[in-house]
């Protein structure tokens, strides 16, 4: 199912090594779930779920459905969902992207399909590519904390 020799063909524009933080969903693979704290993510197969990664690359045959948080993102294939990129979002001519796009720099090549809300945000000061896992609750909400004076939740 994992054809390693074929996967290298798709890596010309997105070097993926055995470095920590890299994830590759190879062509023909169907994966569902949540990707957190990744450095380089390459979607050449089909992935349904959220991604939090420094850089995210969707190959021409890649198909991604979900919520994305990245610094840099390149779309060559299909995407449906919400994207928040702190730095650059590149939508190439073969791309078919639908959803909500929040970006700092947006580049769209002639021929691409991009549909939905596009929003420029110059400075995302609160942005962290390493998404907090929801179970690690933080007392960020003072009102909620004062209401829950009995700290049974932390036990």
């Amino acid at each position: 199912m994992f054809k390693m020799e074929n996967e290298t063909d798709n890596e010309l524009n997105s070097p993926i090594s055995n470095d920590s933080g890299s994830i590759l969903v190879g062509e023909g693979v169907l994966l569902e779930g949540r990707i957190v704290n990744a450095k380089d993510t390459n979607i050449s197969g089909t992935y349904n779920g959220s991604v939090s990664s420094d850089s995210l690359y969707i190959s021409k045959n890649g198909n991604l459905t979900g919520d994305i948080k990245t610094h840099d993102m390149t779309i060559n294939g299909k995407f449906t969902g919400d994207i928040r990129t702190e730095n650059s979002l590149v939508v190439n001519s073969t791309a078919l992207a639908k959803g909500n796009f929040e970006y700092s720099t947006l580049e769209v090549k002639f021929g691409a399909t991009i549909e939905g809300m596009v929003k420029h945000s110059g400075s995302l000061s609160t942005f962290t590519p390493s998404e907090k896992i929801p179970s690690q609750e933080e007392p960020h909400d003072l009102d909620a904390q004062s209401l829950d004076s009995s700290s049974e939740d932390n036990n």
Binding site: S88, T105, L106, E107, V108, K109, F110, A112, T113, I114, E115, G116, M117, V118, K119, H120
Partner: peptide, 15 residues
């Protein structure tokens, strides 16, 4: 559509 990097766009895109 063709967008050069640097453009500031806040809009609904409809093909």
């Amino acid at each position: 559509i063709d967008i050069q990097a640097g453009a500031i766009i806040t809009a609904e895109l409809i093909k």
